[in-house]
């Protein structure tokens, strides 16, 4: 539940718009519209089953992402091994993950612990659980406001983790996009602060286009009050072309992105 906000200057602002448009006062209702949303041919293109998996994978790989397909039966074992491999490849010692029932079932914390990798679950006591309660000092915060030192142990610990593990709510095939409805245990920071991102989801969470992801988002949160404060769409690795139009990967967010799709 969000507290309702406040608004200043509305009357004059709306009155001005009405005047410019030749109305005596602002409209009380939204005007009728002929067109709404995407064109029909685009809306009607619907992929199914393996087509979705294929289209997502192709697009994700085109963005330098990696894809692993696993069966439901082997999910826990294979994904655990995959996460260990990723950590080994990049020399990662700490990982953060969503506190999500599906991820909890995979038992990644135990698997990664075998390699001495601490896993931070995104919950209020996460830092204590992972043994990272004091590990969040930012080495570079010399002389700056000192704000960071006063933030939660969880947030500071997350900033030291180099792998983030999430369970996206929906995945969009035609653009290879993960849709993350972030609230509670599904923290925004987990998919943002790390160097690498591992996203695990089931094939039936795939949709063809963005509009369907929005439909699911709205269906899951029918009232404004229940809407999460952040819906994040992630399409590949963080990138920039700001230096001589030369593509750099991993500028602020994760530069290595992995998707695991669980098939029945």
């Amino acid at each position: 539940m969000t507290k309702p906000g406040t608004m200043m200057g509305k009357e004059a602002f709306m009155q001005n718009i009405a005047r410019r448009l030749g109305r005596s006062e602002p409209l009380r209702e939204a005007p009728a519209r002929m067109l709404k949303g995407v064109p029909e041919f685009y809306r009607d293109r619907k992929l199914h089953g393996d087509e979705l998996v294929e289209e997502f994978s192709r697009n994700w790989m085109a963005l330098s992402g990696k894809v692993l397909l696993v069966s439901e039966a082997e999910a826990a074992v294979t994904i655990g091994a995959y996460a260990r491999e990723i950590c080994k490849e990049h020399g990662i010692e700490r990982a953060a993950r969503w506190d999500h029932p599906e991820l909890n079932k995979l038992g990644l914390d135990e698997t990664l612990a075998e390699d001495g990798i601490a896993v931070l679950p995104w919950r209020p006591d996460g830092a204590e659980i992972a043994g990272l309660a004091d590990g969040g000092a930012n080495p570079d915060s010399s002389g700056a406001a000192g704000n960071w030192a006063r933030r939660s142990a969880l947030l500071r610990a997350a900033e030291t983790c180099r792998l983030g593990i999430v369970w996206p709510d929906v995945a969009i095939a035609n653009t290879a996009t993960l849709a993350l409805f972030s609230h509670g245990g599904k923290g925004r920071s987990v998919s943002l602060l790390t160097d690498a991102l591992l996203a695990v989801f089931r094939a039936d969470q795939l949709v063809t286009r963005m509009g369907e992801a929005f439909e699911r988002f709205k269906a899951a949160h029918p009232t404004l009050e229940s809407m999460p404060s952040s819906l994040n769409l992630i399409t590949g690795p963080s990138r920039s072309a700001d230096i001589e139009n030369d593509l750099t990967i991993g500028i602020h967010g994760p530069g290595k992105v992995y998707a695991v799709i669980i098939r029945p």
């Binding site: 539940m1 969000t2 906000g5 697009n59 995104w122 919950r123 209020p124 939660s152 969880l154 947030l155 035609n174 653009t175 290879a176 996009t177 972030s182 609230h183 509670g184 245990g185 923290g187 925004r188 920071s189 963005m210 404004l224 809407m227 999460p228 404060s229 952040s230 819906l231 994040n232 769409l233 992630i234 399409t235 590949g236 690795p237 963080s238 990138r239 072309a241 967010g253």
Partner: peptide, 24 residues
């Protein structure tokens, strides 16, 4: 803008951090 199918990050933000949120 860039010929990408979609920009890497799109955040749709509705209000500040809510009860139970641990960041934002």
């Amino acid at each position: 803008a860039t010929g990408q199918k979609l920009t890497t990050y799109t955040s749709i933000l509705t209000g500040p951090k809510q009860e139970g949120d641990l960041d934002g």
